[in-house]
Design a protein around this nucleic acid. Structure first.
Length: 925
RNA sequence: GCGGAUGUGGUGAAAUUGGUAGACACGCCAGACUUAGGAUCUGGUGCCGAGAGGUGUGCGGGUUCGAGUCCCUCCAUCCGCACCA
C-alpha cells in the first residue's frame, strides 16, 4: 500500500486539533519544560522555507521532551507591531491592523501545514490591546522605578522621594544624571515641575534629549538602515543629526549585572562574547582638562591614565557642547563648516571610514593638569558624542587613531615608552615601561595606572572610573504602528494613566504620516479618537518594536489573564524558558532588552528568576539560490555556456527561480509570460536548444526572485518530508543555501520506512523475538538519536534514521517490537506518519506522545573483535581484525607478525609502535 | 572600522574526547525492470594515475607517533553595529 502522505497529514492535523492534543496546563506531577521560538513578525510575503527551520527544531525537541515525560510548554505568537505594515499603510491608506490580521492568517495557515505541536490557545499578538495593556503596565513600573547602587537593584521611586523629603539627595545611592545637590527643605520648596525634572534624572524610564537621524523632508526620524549614503532610502532626502526629547530606558544601570549573569546561562560563547562587547566594560579614569582662558573643564574618560604625559592634543566630538564657546573667531568658519559636514554623517559611517582623517582646530588650548603645558583642542568625527564624555585626551604614541590624526595634522607625537619606537605607528600594547612622564617614569602599565589615578584623585580633577559602551536605550518612536504610551501631559509634565484606564488604545488617524510641523503621527488624532484623553495632550510617540518582545515569553504562561500580566503561581511553575531558539541577528537587541526587563521585573518582585532564557540556540539562515541570466549588448539573452570571453556590455538579470527546469535552464515561454519586458525576448540557446542560468547564493528574498515557500513542498512531498529535509540540510546553527532537489532523498526514505510495515501489500508485522542483528541496529539508533538530540544535532539524527531503515530493509526486518520502537524514536521528526503507524499498532491509544521513549541497552552493541586500522607514520594502510581481549602488547606482536606489515616496513625496523586499545595501531618508521 | 561566525568532493554535509577523512543524501556514470518514467532496484563515484601508488579538509608555518580537530600568520565569504524585525 502506498504512503499517501497528503491524506495522512490532513487526517492528523484535524484529529490533533479536535482532540486538543497539544494543549497544556500546569501539572505538578510532572517536571516542566519550556521550549520557545522567537516569534515572527508577520510580513506580507508569508513564510519561506527559512522561517520554519528553528520551529521544526524546537518542535522536535518539544515532542522529544514530551515523550520523555515532561510537561512541555511550546507556544507561538506574533510580534505584530512594526514598520512594514506602517509603510504599507502610508502607501495604501489601509489601516495596519487590517494588513497585520491578514498576514497573521496567512502565517497561521502555513504554520498549521507543518504539523507543529504549538498550544495555539496561548497565542499572543503584541499589537492586540489585551496584550499591550500589559506592555503599558510594565512601562509604568519602569517609570516608577530607580536603580539603587547599594541594594544593587531597582526600587520603587517612592523610596527615593521619601529620602528626598527627609534629607535631600546628598546621600542618595542611585544611578542618575542629576548634578544638582539639594536638602530636604530645598526639595519641599521645589515646584511640581522642578520636582519632576529632577525625578526624570533618576527614573528607569525617563525623558531626555538624545541624538537621532532627522530627515527634515520626511519630517521623521530614520533608522540607520533607512539611510543610504547619507540620504534617506525613501526619496533620497538629506538626513542630519539632531537632539530630540525622547523616552529612554536606563539600561546602563544594569550593565554590570547583565555582564555578570552571562556567566550563569547556557548560551554559546560567541553570543555571550557579542553581548560582552556590546556592554563594553572598560576600566580607567575620568580626567578634567582646564581650558586656557575660560572657566571650563573638559572631562574625558581614558582607559590609559598611565599615558597622561603622552597627551599632545585633545579631540572633541563635533557636537560637543563646548565647541561653540571655545572656538576662536579666526577658526569659527572652519569649525562650523566641519560641524556641518559631520552632522550629515551617520555614526556608523564615522566609525567605518578611518581612511579619511578629518578634523578642525578650534583655536583654543587646554592646560595639561600635571605639566601645565598648552594642548591644542581639535574637533574630529572619530570621536562620538554618544560614547564616554564625547571628548578624548589624545595620546598619539599609544593609540593608533590618535597617531593617525596627529600625523595627518602634523601634531607632535611625544614618546612616553622606554625602548619603544613610535615614529611609524602607535604602540598600544600594555607591556611597555613608562618614560618621560615625571612621577610615572620606570613604572609598568599596571603600576603607572594606579599611581596616575591616585594623582588625578589627589588633584581633584577626576577619579578611577568604570565606563560602559552600552548606552541607555531610546524608547520613543515617531511612528504610528506601535504601543501608545500610558502617558499624558499636564503643565508640560508627563503623568501616568492610571491602571484602571489601561490600555490606552491606538487612536484612528487620517494619514499615517508626521504632521506638518514634524510631530509624530499620533498628533493627528482628534481628542475623541483616543480611548482615554487626559491633560493637555496624550504622548504622541509610540514604543519601539522591542517593547512587546521583551516580555512575551511571560505572557504565554497565562495569556488570557485580565488582572495581571500573568498569575504569579503560573510564573513560578513555568519559570525560565528552558530552550530558546532563534536567529543570531537578535544577539544584542532583543536578547539584551529581554534580559533587562526580566531583571527589572525580578527586582520589583513580580517574577522569581532574573534571566529569561536558560539555554539559547541560534539557528542559521537559509539562503536562496538566485537565477542569473545574461543579456548582451544586442539585448538577447545568452545561455551561460554561450557567453563570449568578454562580458563587456552584458548585464545580469535575476529571474524567478520558479521559471527554471531541473537542469537550470529557463522555461522560455514561462519567462515571456512572467514580466512584460520579456514578452518578445530573443535568446542565444546552447547546442541542446537551452538557455542556462548561473545560480548564485543570496539572502532568500522576494526582491531576488529566489523564494521557496513551504506550501508547495508540503503539497508535493508532505510536511514530514519537509521537516526532515530541513533538518537534514546541515547543522541548525549554520547558514546554508536551499536546494529543493535533495528533498527526494528524504521522501524516498519515508517511503522506505513505510514499506517496512507492509508484506505483500498488507500492513503486517511478525511478533516473534527480534533478531540480535535487528536489536543491534535499533539500539545503535537509540543511542545515536538521544546523543544527537542532547547536543541539538538534528541533521545527524536524520542520517541515523536513514541508516537504521537501510539496515532493517537489508535485514528484511518486519518485527513488531523493532519497528514500534523505531516509530517512537521518529515521532518527533515526522509526527504525521508516525502517528498514523502508531494508530495502526495501537488503535486504542490516545496518541504516540503518550508512548514511552525507547531506552538504550549497551548489551546489544557489545563486540568481541575490532578491525584495527594499521598506520605507518600516521597513514592508514590496511586493517587487521583482532579479538578485543588481546592486550596492547599482544596486539602489537600480532600486527608486527602480519605479512602486510612486512611489506610496508620495507625492511626497516620500526622506531616505535603505538597501540591504542580498540582504536588504532600506528607504526613509526 | 569594531564585534561575531564560517571555509572539507560537482552539491548539502559527517567525523561528539587529537586516532581509519568524505558517513548519510543530492547529482553523475553503468546496469536491471518497464509501453513509458520526475517510479523502483543493483553497482560505481574526492582528485591524479593503466596500475602500483601518490595526493587531499581556504593559504603558509608550528606542536605531535598521529592534526579537519590544538597554536601562530594570512586570505575569502556571511551576519550584527543601537529607530528593520
Amino acid at each position: 500500500m502506498d504512503y499517501s502522505f497528503n491524506a495522512i497529514e490532513a487526517k492528523w492535523r484535524q484529529l490533533w486539533q479536535e482532540r486538543k492534543t497539544y494543549q497544556v496546563a500546569e501539572d505538578h506531577t510532572k517536571p516542566k519544560f519550556y521550549v520557545l521560538d522567537m516569534f515572527p513578525y508577520p510580513s506580507g510575503a508569508g513564510l519561506h522555507v527559512g522561517h520554519p527551520l528553528g520551529y521544526i527544531a524546537s518542535d522536535i525537541f518539544a515532542r522529544y521532551k514530551r515523550l520523555k515525560g515532561f510537561n512541555v510548554l511550546h507556544p507561538m505568537g506574533y510580534d505584530s507591531f512594526g514598520l512594514p505594515a506602517e509603510q504599507y499603510a502610508i502607501q495604501t491608506g489601509q489601516h495596519p491592523a487590517i494588513t497585520t490580521k491578514e498576514n497573521i492568517a496567512r502565517y497561521r495557515q502555513q504554520l498549521d501545514l507543518m504539523g507543529f505541536s504549538f498550544d495555539w490557545d496561548r497565542e499572543v499578538r503584541t499589537s492586540d490591546p489585551s496584550y499591550y495593556k500589559w506592555t503599558q503596565w510594565i512601562f509604568k513600573q519602569l517609570f516608577n522605578a530607580y536603580y539603587d547602587t547599594v541594594a544593587n537593584k531597582a526600587l520603587h521611586i517612592h523610596q527615593l522621594i521619601a529620602q528626598f523629603e527627609s534629607e535631600g539627595n546628598t546621600n542618595v545611592t542611585a544611578v542618575h544624571e542629576c548634578e544638582q545637590l539639594f536638602d530636604a527643605a530645598a526639595w519641599m520648596a521645589f515646584s511640581p515641575a522642578e520636582k519632576e525634572g529632577i525625578l526624570q534624572q533618576y527614573r528607569m524610564a525617563y525623558l531626555a534629549e538624545s541624538w537621532v537621524n532627522w530627515c527634515p523632508a520626511l519630517g521623521t526620524v530614520l533608522a540607520n538602515d533607512e539611510i543610504i549614503n547619507g540620504v534617506s532610502e525613501r526619496g533620497g532626502h538629506p538626513v542630519e543629526q539632531k537632539r530630540m526629547m525622547q523616552w529612554s530606558m536606563r539600561i546602563k544601570a544594569y550593565a554590570e549585572r547583565l555582564l555578570e549573569s552571562l556567566n550563569h546561562i547556557d548560551w554559546t560563547d560567541a553570543l555571550k562574547e557579542q553581548q560582552r562587547n556590546w556592554i563594553g566594560k572598560s576600566v580607567g579614569s575620568s580626567v578634567q582638562f582646564a581650558v586656557k582662558g575660560a572657566d571650563l573643564q573638559i572631562e574625558v574618560f581614558t582607559t590609559r591614565p598611565d599615558t597622561i604625559f603622552g597627551v599632545s592634543f585633545m579631540v572633541l566630538a563635533p557636537e560637543h557642547p563646548f565647541v561653540a564657546q571655545i572656538c576662536t573667531v579666526a577658526q569659527t568658519n572652519e569649525v562650523q563648516a566641519y560641524q556641518q559636514q559631520a552632522m550629515l554623517k551617520t555614526e556608523r559611517d564615522r566609525q567605518a571610514d578611518i581612511k579619511n582623517i578629518t578634523g578642525a582646530f578650534t583655536g583654543a588650548c587646554a592646560l595639561h593638569p600635571f605639566t601645565g603645558q598648552e594642548i591644542p583642542i581639535w574637533i574630529g568625527d572619530y570621536v562620538l558624542a554618544s560614547y564616554g564624555t564625547g571628548a578624548v585626551m589624545a595620546v598619539p604614541c599609544g593609540d593608533q587613531r590618535d597617531f593617525d590624526f596627529a600625523k595627518h595634522f602634523n601634531l607632535s607625537i611625544p614618546n612616553i615608552f622606554a625602548n619603544q619606537d613610535c615614529t611609524e605607528a602607535a604602540y598600544s600594547e600594555k607591556d611597555a615601561i613608562i618614560a618621560n612622564s615625571d612621577f610615572l617614569n620606570g613604572l609598568d602599565t599596571k603600576a603607572a595606572m594606579e599611581k596616575a589615578i591616585a594623582a588625578i584623585e589627589a588633584k581633584g580633577i577626576g577619579q578611577g572610573k568604570t565606563n560602559y559602551r552600552l548606552r541607555d536605550a531610546v524608547f520613543s518612536r515617531q511612528r504610528y504602528w506601535g504601543e501608545p504610551f500610558p502617558v499624558y501631559y499636564q503643565d508640560g509634565l508627563p503623568h501616568l494613566v492610571e491602571d484602571a484606564l489601561l490600555p490606552v488604545t491606538l487612536p484612528d488617524i487620517d494619514a499615517y504620516l508626521p504632521t506638518q510641523d514634524g510631530e509624530p503621527p499620533l498628533a493627528r488624532a482628534a481628542k475623541e479618537a483616543w480611548s482615554i484623553h487626559l491633560g493637555e495632550r496624550m504622548e504622541y510617540n509610540t514604543m519601539p518594536g522591542w517593547a512587546g518582545s521583551s516580555w512575551y515569553f511571560l505572557r504565554y504562561m497565562d495569556p488570557h489573564n485580565q488582572e495581571a500580566f500573568a498569575d504569579p503561581e503560573k510564573l513560578a511553575y513555568w519559570n525560565q524558558v528552558d530552550l530558546y531558539i532563534g536567529g543570531s541577528e537578535h544577539a544584542t537587541g532583543h536578547l539584551l532588552y529581554a534580559r533587562f526587563w526580566t531583571k527589572v521585573l525580578y527586582d520589583l518582585g513580580f517574577i522569581t528568576f532574573d534571566e529569561p532564557f536558560a539555554k539559547l540556540i541560534n539557528q542559521g539562515m537559509i539562503l536562496g539560490k538566485s537565477a542569473i541570466a545574461y543579456i548582451g549588448p544586442d539585448q538577447k539573452m545568452y545561455s551561460l555556456d554561450m557567453l563570449p570571453a568578454s562580458l563587456d556590455g552584458f548585464r545580469e538579470v535575476r529571474i524567478l527561480i520558479d521559471l527554471l527546469n531541473d537542469d537550470d535552464s529557463i522555461q522560455l515561454d514561462a519567462l515571456k509570460a512572467w514580466q512584460p519586458q520579456y514578452t518578445s525576448q530573443e535568446f542565444i540557446c546552447n547546442a541542446h536548444g537551452k538557455v542556462l542560468v548561473k545560480r548564485e547564493v543570496d539572502k532568500m528574498s522576494k526582491r531576488w526572485y529566489n523564494v521557496v515557500t513551504p506550501d508547495a513542498l508540503c503539497e508535493k512531498y508532505g510536511a514530514d518530508t519537509l521537516r526532515m529535509y530541513e533538518m537534514f540540510l546541515g547543522p541548525l546553527e549554520q547558514s546554508k543555501p536551499w536546494d529543493t532537489k535533495g528533498i527526494t532523498g528524504v521522501h524516498s526514505f519515508l517511503k522506505k520506512y513505510w514499506r517496512l510495515f507492509y508484506q505483500n501489500g498488507h500492513f503486517e508485522l511478525e511478533d516473534s523475538q527480534p533478531s540480535n542483528i535487528a536489536l543491534k541496529t535499533l539500539h545503535k539508533t537509540i543511542k545515536k538519536l538521544t546523543d544527537d538530540l542532547d547536543r541539538f544535532s538534528f541533521n545527524t539524527g536524520v542520517s541515523s534514521f536513514m541508516i537504521c531503515v537501510n539496515e532493517l530493509t537489508e535485514q528484511k526486518c518486519n518485527n513488531r517490537h523493532i519497528l514500534e520502537q523505531l516509530t517512537i524514536l521518529m515521532a518527533p521528526y515526522a509526527p504525521h506518519i508516525c502517528e498514523e503507524i502508531w494508530s495502526k499498532l495501537h488503535p486504542a491509544s490516545a496518541g504516540i506522545l503518550n508512548a514511552a521513549y525507547p531506552v538504550f541497552d549497551p548489551a546489544y552493541l557489545a563486540e568481541s573483535s575490532f578491525d584495527y586500522p594499521v598506520s605507518f607514520n600516521g597513514k592508514m594502510r590496511f586493517k587487521v581484525t583482532l579479538e578485543l581481549s588481546h592486550a596492547i602488547e599482544e596486539v602489537k606482536d600480532l600486527v608486527l607478525a602480519r605479512p602486510e606489515t612486512h611489506k610496508w616496513l620495507e625492511g626497516k625496523t620500526p622506531k616505535k609502535v603505538i597501540v591504542v586499545h580498540g582504536k588504532i595501531v600506528n607504526i613509526v618508521l
